[in-house]
Amino acid sequence: MRPFPGNRLSEAQKIFNYRLSTARRLIENTFGILVQRFRIFRTEILAQPEKVKAIIIASVCLHNFIISTRGAPTDIQELSIGSGISQLGRVGSNNSSRTNQDLRNRLMDYFLSVEGAVPWQREKALRGTL
């Protein structure tokens, strides 16, 4: 999903972009850990989406089991982040479809709602812009 482009964004758009970038960093770091621990994530997984989902869930469960039985890794080489992510090239156009824009707007509304807002989002998203 693309963030809202440009410099003249509304407060809601800035909050959405902040929340999106936070989620993206978390996901990239998580997959970086999985890439380092499990070889299957070093290349494209040639399987049906349901199988790929099962592989990811099993890998996360196995990773958590290893952590709970052996403890967190202390060797920085074991879990260096990013080697699998950095190999990605351009995967699509820069144009987002109307469906994607609608989804982005619905997520933006959710992030501003009582159910979806977090207490610190406004302060973090608008830091330095007021």
Score class of each variant (00 low, 15 high):
Gln48Phe: 12
Val60Asn: 07
Ser21Pro: 00
Ala72Cys: 12
Tyr18Gly: 04
Val60Lys: 04
Ile66Phe: 07
Ser68Arg: 01
Ala54Trp: 01
Ser21Phe: 03
Thr74Phe: 07
Phe65Gly: 02
Leu34His: 03
Gln36Arg: 14
Pro73Val: 04
Ala54Leu: 06
Thr43Tyr: 13
Glu44Tyr: 14
Thr43Gln: 15
Phe38Ala: 04
Phe16Pro: 03
Ile33Ser: 11
Ser68Gln: 06
Lys53Cys: 00
Gly32Ala: 03
Ile40Trp: 00
His63Ser: 08
Thr43Gly: 06
Phe41Ile: 10
Asn17Lys: 12
Ile27Trp: 15
Asn29Lys: 13
Val60Gln: 07
Ala54Pro: 05
Asp75Tyr: 03
Thr69Lys: 08
Leu62Trp: 08
Phe65Val: 01
Asn29Gly: 09
Ala54Ser: 07
Ile40Arg: 09
Tyr18Trp: 14
Glu44Cys: 06
Lys51Ile: 07
Asp75Phe: 00
Phe31Lys: 11
Ala72Gly: 04
Ile67Arg: 04
Phe41Lys: 03
Lys53Asp: 05
Ile40Ser: 02
Glu28Gly: 09
Thr74His: 13
Thr22Ser: 15
Leu34Val: 10
Arg19Ile: 08
Arg24Glu: 14
Lys14Val: 07
Asp75Pro: 03
Ile15Pro: 08
Glu50Thr: 05
Gln48Cys: 09
Ala23Cys: 14
Ala23Lys: 12
Ala72Pro: 05
Gln13Ile: 10
Lys53Ser: 05
Leu46Cys: 15
Ile67Ser: 00
Arg42Ala: 14
Gln13Gly: 02
Arg39Asn: 15
Arg39Pro: 02
Ile57Cys: 02
Arg24Asp: 14
Phe65Ala: 07
Ala58His: 08
Ile45Pro: 02
Ile66Gln: 03
Ile55Phe: 04
Gln48Ser: 13
Gln13Trp: 05
Lys51Asn: 14
Cys61Ser: 08
Arg42Tyr: 05
Ile56Val: 14
Ser59Val: 03
Phe65Asn: 04
Ala23Met: 10
Ile55Ala: 09
Gln48Val: 09
Ile67Val: 15
Ile45Thr: 03
Arg70Gln: 05
His63Arg: 06
Glu50Gln: 08
Leu26Asn: 14
Ile66Tyr: 06
Thr69Trp: 04
Ile66Asn: 01
Arg70Gly: 00
Thr74Asp: 04
Asp75Glu: 10
Leu26Met: 14
Gln36Val: 07
Ile67Asn: 09
Gly71Glu: 00
Ala58Thr: 09
Ile57Asn: 05
Thr43Cys: 11
Asn64His: 06
Phe16Ile: 04
Val60Tyr: 05
Asp75Gly: 10
Asp75Met: 01
